[in-house]
């Protein structure tokens, strides 16, 4: 499978993942959205040297992966392109902050190393939480949840259509690339001299396809706002889940749980 087909297939896999059934999938999308926002806010608010405090936050994605039946490796595989970028953010910290913070035998751990690790953890945890939200909630339900939060319909429609049109554009790219390859045997990729016309053609073709799709939507009564998948009213269990998770994040943020637990054993 070439890269484009793989990208298309991965996009569809996300749809399939979101449509599965599990206790997490069944949660109200608004609850999942709010909990994810709370989680990310809690994670990014940890001080840069609070490694142990932040480490406790791994429990949320760990539990959710189990409950949703989604393998962790799927998450890391899907995020393989963006993860290195997130991890690269703190790479210069060890050079800027050389304050000794910890002595492990002969090795001195500087503040820069700890802040680098916490920065990476913050990035990875936030990505994992976002992945879990998308992998357990369909894009329609997500947009419906956003509408319930009074996010303007123009933004939710834009989000939904962008998501849908990525697939359409990938299809066009696949068709054009295949046509190019068939007439350029042995050539790796698309030659730089063809990039301009390739992109121009892609734009025109995508616009044509988009026009057709939009026409089809108009003819079926589309008037600027989607009727999103019916989201039933939030159940008490959803409210309990939201409050419990938000409370747990607040607790983890305010109380050094790892230190308290460690103190129980060490004395």
């Amino acid at each position: 499978m070439d890269k484009l087909s793989q990208a298309q297939s991965e996009l569809r896999e996300m749809d399939a993942l979101a449509a599965e059934d599990s206790p997490v999938h069944r949660l109200h999308p608004l609850c999942k959205l709010l909990v994810t926002v709370c989680y990310i806010a809690a994670v990014v608010s940890f001080p840069k040297y609070d490694f142990t405090g932040l480490a406790v936050m791994v429990l949320y994605p760990a539990v959710l992966f189990q409950a949703a039946g989604i393998p962790v490796r799927t998450c890391f595989y899907k995020l393989r392109i963006v993860l290195p970028l997130v991890c690269a953010v703190g790479l210069v910290n060890p050079f800027l902050d050389r304050t000794p913070m910890l002595q492990l035998g002969m090795v001195t751990i500087t503040g820069g190393v700890i802040s680098m690790v916490t920065l990476m953890m913050k990035g990875v945890f936030s990505l994992m939480a976002s992945f879990l939200l998308i992998a357990t909630t369909t894009i329609d339900s997500l947009c419906a949840a956003l509408r319930k939060l009074h996010v303007p319909s123009i933004l939710t429609t834009l989000l939904l259509l962008t998501y849908r049109y990525i697939g359409v554009m990938l299809e066009e790219v696949t068709i054009m690339t295949e046509a190019y390859k068939l007439r350029a045997p042995g050539q790796k990729g698309i030659h730089i001299s063809a990039w301009g016309s390739f992109l121009g053609q892609l734009l025109l073709r995508s616009m044509d396809r988009a026009q057709e799709l939009f026409g089809s939507m108009l003819l079926r009564g589309f008037q600027g706002e989607f009727f999103y998948a019916d989201v039933p009213p939030c159940k008490p269990s959803g409210i309990v889940y939201t409050i419990a998770c938000a409370g747990a994040f607040l607790l983890a943020r305010l109380v050094p749980i790892a230190s308290v637990l460690g103190g129980l054993f060490v004395g």
Partner: peptide, 26 residues
């Protein structure tokens, strides 16, 4: 009701059911 030449342009929702409810719900 208009049945387009290219069904791919007509079926823009993820599932057949979602596509079928699109018009009536609108």
């Amino acid at each position: 009701g208009f049945v387009l030449q290219d069904s791919d342009n007509q079926m823009f929702m993820p599932t057949v059911y979602e596509d079928m409810i699109f018009g009536p719900r609108n």
